[in-house]
Structure formats: structure tokens, C-alpha cells
Computed example of a mutant assay.
Amino acid sequence: MQGFPGYSPLNKVNRDRTSFSLYFDSEIDFTKKWLLTTAFRFENYSDFGNTINTKIATRFKVSSKTNLRTSFSTGFRAPSLAQIYYNLKFTNYIDNKPVESFLIANNNPITNSFGIKQLKEEKAINYSLGISHKANKNFQFFIDSYYIFIKDRIILSGNFDASSIDPNVQNVQFFANGVNTSTYGLDFKINWCKKFSTSKLFFNFTGNFNKMKVTRINNKNLDLETFFGAREQYFLRASAPKHKLILNAIYSNKNLSISSSLTRYSNLELLDWQIYKPLSDFDNSPEKRISASIDKYVAKYTLDCHFSYKLSKNYSIQIGVNNLFNTYPTQQGENTDSGGLWDAVQMGSNGAFYYSKFSVNF
């Protein structure tokens, strides 16, 4: 069933934005081994003002096969037009119960009455340190570590009581520069390739490790749990999963190509709607309530396989499967955000997908 009532003339908005930017970039080889890069960017947005960002990066050749690199930069993300002006009344389902809600625009006086100011840009500070090494013509690897601090991240608030504002609406939500976060991470990529007389075998192993922390919540005088409570914090941290690992293997010759990809998705935890139920349902124990509310998704693997064959110069066929073993996320109860068997986690919930393709190229 569809709980969206559609758009009314009251939702109509005609807004535009113009931006102007200047960008300067330089690269200087001080020596044969040392490269220095600098960048400067000025940007003006008609609806929220100016921003200035810089970058400095360097690369040092330890040897003909090994490079060290590091960088420091600042960045920004402008609030979108939708985040500033979008407004809509809709039916929201909270713990499987229909609730009439109102998503109010940032420039609406109601938003201002909650103490929410005009949206401004998200600001970021980024550090990175990496190494690359080519052992021989067949083997090479890359490792990069990073730290990202984001100030004034734009979030969608929780549901505030709106009964005094509109008798036909129970809750209101709005966008706000709500939180600061810091993220530590590590990326790596390992390549191995072997060429034979008429064929080639290639292996690629890539991965990412993350740890995100919510360092500040800018709720001002608003109730913290309603503005951006524990449940929303769990979802935000889940947007940067602890890890993701991918192993690819490809064999090919003149006409044939066979590839497979094994992916590991990390475990994660989310809070379901039980976190807002009365303590009396859990023997008046906050510990029992949060324990019942945590939905644990264990680490899972998926395997994709693809086969293609070139029949002639102009014709080829391909068959394949994504998620060969029909793997699904860990099944949860009925209190998830969607009210279904699981939340919208990274690995998806569509199961196996089989396909075939016939190509003609003239």
C-alpha cells in the first residue's frame, strides 16, 4: 500500500541557485624523487555565501618501485535545494503504525521556531598517508590510511510533536546541521597478473576498514533523543561499515572470459523501534530495552560469477549470476525501520539474480 498522498499546490516551490568558483592548482617537481602539489578553491553560492578550501599533497619516490604519499585538505558540501526548500505532508509508519507527518522546509518559520537556523555547508578536514609498491611486472599493492572530520553534517531530525501546529499532523521533521563526525579508515588494493602465451590470469584483492564516531550533536535546546537519538546515531554509523572486502579473479583468452567476485560485508548493529517503547515492557530495565532493540547483522559473503564467449567478430554471449548462493541479511523481527525482515543494509536484500545477454556489434 502507498502512504504517499501526492503533491498539492501548497508544496509547489520555484527556487534556483547560482554559483561562481575560482580554482588554482600547481604541481612542482623539486627533485626527481619529490613532487609537491597545492590547490586553492574559492566558491560563492547565491543562497548561502562563500567558502574557501585548500589542499597540499606530496609524493616521495623511495625507490623506482616504491612511493610514499601524504595529503592535507579541506572540503565542503553545499546543502541541496531539496534540503533547503522541500516540504511534504505524508503518512509515515513508525513501528508499523501509520502517523501523519510533515517534512517542513528549512526556510519555513515553523523550523525557525524550533531554533533551527538557515542551513550552511558541511565542512571537512582530511588527512591521508599512503604507500604504493610494484614488486615486479606481475605484483603490486597500494595502502592508504585517512582521517576525515566533518563539521555541521546535515541530518534529518527525528519526529517532533506537531499537534499544536496543525491538527491534521502528528509529527514534524526538518533538515538541520545536526552533527559532527570523525572517521578513521584504511584502504588497500593488491593486484597480481600473469600472462601466458594465449591467455591471462588476474587476481585483485581490495578492502576498506572504517571507524566513525559522532563527536557532537548540535541539538541546542531541543530534546536530544528526539532530535538525533541513539537510533539515528546507529544508522549514521552504519553508513560507514566496519569493513568490506572484495576478491576478484579473471581468466581470459582470445574468445573466452570467466570472472568471479567474492565479497564480504561486515557485521553491524542497528536499533529498531523497540527503543521507544515504555520501560514497563522490559521489567523497567533500560539495559533490557536496549538489548531487545539491537538488531545484529552478522558478516555475510556473496559470490558473483560471469562467463562470456566471443562467437565471432560481431557476436558474443554472456551469462552470469549475482549472489550465486542466494544470501540474505540476518533476519530480524517486525520492529525494523521498514517493518519487514531486515533494514536497508549495504549487502542488499534481493537475493540471487541470474541473467543472460546476447550482443551484436557491427
Results as ranks from 00 to 15, higher is better:
residue 153 R to C: 01
residue 9 P to V: 11
residue 63 S to L: 00
residue 176 A to K: 01
residue 301 Y to R: 09
residue 313 K to D: 11
residue 36 L to T: 10
residue 65 K to N: 12
residue 15 R to K: 15
residue 328 Y to L: 12
residue 202 F to P: 02
residue 296 K to D: 04
residue 135 A to Q: 14
residue 226 T to F: 03
residue 255 N to W: 04
residue 354 Y to F: 15
residue 235 F to C: 02
residue 186 L to M: 14
residue 189 K to M: 12
residue 122 E to Y: 02
residue 112 N to Q: 15
residue 8 S to F: 13
residue 132 S to H: 06
residue 61 K to Y: 04
residue 210 N to D: 13
residue 140 Q to W: 08
residue 328 Y to W: 11
residue 54 T to I: 06
residue 28 I to H: 13
residue 215 T to L: 01
residue 118 Q to T: 14
residue 351 G to P: 04
residue 241 P to V: 02
residue 25 D to N: 12
residue 29 D to M: 12
residue 269 E to Q: 10
residue 16 D to E: 11
residue 133 H to F: 07
residue 103 L to T: 00
residue 49 G to H: 07
residue 190 I to Q: 04
residue 268 L to T: 08
residue 250 I to D: 13
residue 50 N to H: 13
residue 30 F to M: 13
residue 358 F to E: 07
residue 131 I to C: 06
residue 42 F to W: 14
residue 131 I to A: 14
residue 32 K to C: 04
residue 264 R to Y: 05
residue 322 N to D: 10
residue 64 S to G: 04
residue 143 I to Q: 01
residue 194 K to C: 08
residue 225 E to A: 06
residue 61 K to V: 00
residue 216 R to W: 01
residue 94 I to A: 09
residue 282 F to L: 07
residue 7 Y to Q: 13
residue 143 I to M: 11
residue 238 A to I: 01
residue 107 N to F: 06
residue 268 L to Y: 05
residue 262 L to N: 03
residue 100 E to G: 01
residue 175 F to D: 00
